Computed example of a mutant assay.
Amino acid sequence: MSGPRERLEEERRRTTARLTALRGDHRGFFDASRDTNADDEHDPEGATIAFEREQVAALVRQAEEHLEQVAAALARLDEGSYGRCAVCGRQIPPERLEVRPTATTCVACA
Results as ranks from 00 to 15, higher is better:
residue 44 P to A: 03
residue 45 E to C: 10
residue 43 D to G: 07
residue 56 V to C: 11
residue 60 V to N: 08
residue 41 E to C: 03
residue 64 E to I: 08
residue 47 A to L: 09
residue 68 E to H: 08
residue 62 Q to S: 02
residue 39 D to C: 12
residue 41 E to G: 04
residue 47 A to F: 03
residue 55 Q to S: 14
residue 57 A to N: 08
residue 52 E to H: 04
residue 40 D to F: 05
residue 62 Q to D: 01
residue 52 E to F: 00
residue 51 F to G: 01
residue 54 E to Q: 15
residue 55 Q to A: 05
residue 52 E to Q: 12
residue 54 E to H: 13
residue 52 E to G: 01
residue 67 L to W: 05
residue 47 A to K: 08
residue 40 D to Y: 05
residue 50 A to W: 14
residue 65 E to W: 07
residue 43 D to E: 09
residue 44 P to G: 00
residue 66 H to M: 06
residue 61 R to F: 05
residue 40 D to R: 05
residue 60 V to P: 02
residue 58 A to S: 02
residue 56 V to F: 07
residue 49 I to A: 10
residue 41 E to I: 01
residue 61 R to D: 13
residue 55 Q to Y: 10
residue 56 V to G: 06
residue 58 A to E: 02
residue 54 E to W: 04
residue 64 E to C: 13
residue 66 H to V: 04
residue 48 T to Q: 03
residue 45 E to D: 15
residue 46 G to D: 05
residue 63 A to L: 05
residue 53 R to F: 13
residue 61 R to A: 12
residue 58 A to Q: 01
residue 56 V to Q: 02
residue 58 A to R: 01
residue 52 E to V: 03
residue 65 E to Y: 06
residue 48 T to M: 03
residue 68 E to F: 12
residue 51 F to R: 08
residue 59 L to Q: 08
residue 44 P to L: 00
residue 53 R to N: 08
residue 57 A to T: 07
residue 66 H to E: 12
residue 43 D to Y: 01
residue 57 A to R: 08
residue 60 V to F: 10
residue 54 E to P: 12
residue 59 L to E: 03
residue 47 A to Y: 06
residue 50 A to E: 15
residue 67 L to Y: 04
residue 51 F to W: 15
residue 65 E to H: 13
residue 62 Q to E: 00
residue 42 H to W: 13
residue 66 H to Q: 07
residue 52 E to L: 01
residue 61 R to K: 07
residue 55 Q to C: 08
residue 42 H to S: 15
residue 62 Q to C: 02
residue 40 D to N: 12
residue 56 V to R: 10
residue 53 R to S: 14
residue 61 R to M: 10
residue 41 E to H: 10
residue 50 A to G: 12
residue 57 A to Y: 04
residue 52 E to C: 02
residue 67 L to N: 04
residue 62 Q to R: 04
residue 50 A to K: 04
